[in-house]
Design a protein around this nucleic acid. Structure first.
Ligand SMILES: [Mn+2]
Ligand SMILES: [Mn+2]
Ligand SMILES: [Mn+2]
Ligand SMILES: [Mn+2]
Lengths: 223, 223
DNA sequence: AATAAAATTTAGATTAGTCTAAAAATAAAT
DNA sequence: ATTTATTTTTAGACTAATCTAAATTTTATT
């Protein structure tokens, strides 16, 4: 295991995320957009990470992570999510305030610290946003999730994750009363624009646009 | 308040420590030794920090911290020591295992994180090594000093001063391994002659006569 | 006071990470 | 199949932090 800089770790994590939601290759511009850099910088970094065997790279054709690269990315995600749990559970931050701070804490690499933190938190399986926390081998419990967009009317479930973590999106969710763990029931789907009529926690009902419904993951209740 | 890099913060903290134990100026070599760099690198950094008004610098004559520089150094020490408390109190690290990890955590600067951490820990006044934790204004409680003679068995502390500076006394201290800053733990007090059984730096134990114990001031660790 | 020793600074390089502008390759559109 | 547009890479430059080796300044010793 090679020592990586914080910068390299951030690239790796972001490439992992793009691969997880997209296809099997990610492009330079896509990475640049997510990391807040320019394509030229990304090209340089890709060469460096390929050199270190963390990703496979064919010029002009995008990259995918190697086995080793994936495992490394999962360890970074593990640290990020454990710190997020700490910040919310112990320091009483709101779930939409922790991103930037965990983004820094995740780069403290001492394995003994991560183990002790995990233990201290009671070996949580999910972070405050509903995302799974990999164990020290990069494994996690797979739980079937569906986009709210795909849920048929009449079905109910629980919000387990958001696929967009922008402050704008999170504060909107907060405003309408949606949070990780909220019980949601799809009352109707509007053909016209793909929006969803939703009952939250058995109480008030709201209409969510297709864009919003496409960024909420739910785990369906057994029915 | 200017944003400082982790490197700049480390220099600042180390210069503070050298000033605290030494005189009113520190030299380039001294800093290089403590930061694990070379004198040439230190020279460059001193120019940069002087530029930022954090220290006053006269070429070839060493540096001292400005008001602003001192305040900044204290905020870094605050973060370092709060994390040390966290690691020992919450994550159950031993007091001599926390240095390297806190050395990294201290550079996460988000003020809200530091406040919440402080609160979560119950606003501790001292770190696990007995060093005072500055508040957000850089102030700390000067903790009462006690003569080693007065310390009850079982208590631990840190040597902070000698009340006798004769060469004979000092060289005796040197011989048995006692110095300013040494961690000492009183194991027993002998009724018969008032002598003290002492463990030094968690290592060897010695017996000190009543005369010697009456000339050593310690600051007790919080217990 | 002159000389030798020690400490400090400068000169010139190197590495990581970034950028802009230009060149090259791929993909899309005529 | 050309031409155009988009994406990606390269070339060249910059900043932060570091180094070695040489020059300079201060301090100590004759
Ligand atoms: Mn990060
Ligand atoms: Mn998360
Ligand atoms: Mn540090
Ligand atoms: Mn300490």
């Amino acid at each position: 295991m090679i020592q990586l800089s914080s910068t390299e770790e951030n690239y790796l994590k972001n490439i992992y995320r793009l691969l997880a939601e997209g296809g099997e290759k990610v492009g330079t511009n896509e990475i640049a957009a997510l990391t807040g850099t320019k394509a030229a910088s990304v090209s340089d970094m890709l060469k460096k990470l390929a050199e270190k065997q963390l990703l496979s790279y064919r010029k002009y054709h995008g990259v995918s992570l190697t086995e080793e690269g994936t495992k490394t990315a999962l360890l970074i995600l593990r640290r990020q999510r454990l710190w997020e749990v700490f910040l919310v559970e112990k320091l009483k931050f709101a779930w939409d305030e922790v991103a930037a701070i965990a983004e820094e804490l995740e780069h403290v690499k001492a394995p003994v610290l991560v183990r002790r933190l995990d233990e201290y938190l009671g070996f949580p399986k999910f972070d405050p946003h509903g995302d799974p926390i990999p164990d020290e081998f990069g494994e996690w419990e797979s739980s079937p999730r569906v986009l709210l967009q795909e849920v048929a009317p009449g079905k109910a479930g629980k919000v387990v994750a958001v696929t967009n973590s922008s402050a704008a999106f999170l504060s909107y969710l907060d405003k309408v009363g949606i949070y990780i763990g909220a019980k949601v029931e799809v009352l109707d789907k509007i053909e016209f624009d793909g929006s969803v009529e939703l009952r939250i926690d058995g109480g008030k009902t709201v209409y969510l646009s297709r864009e919003v419904a496409a960024n909420l993951q739910v785990r369906l209740h057994p029915s």
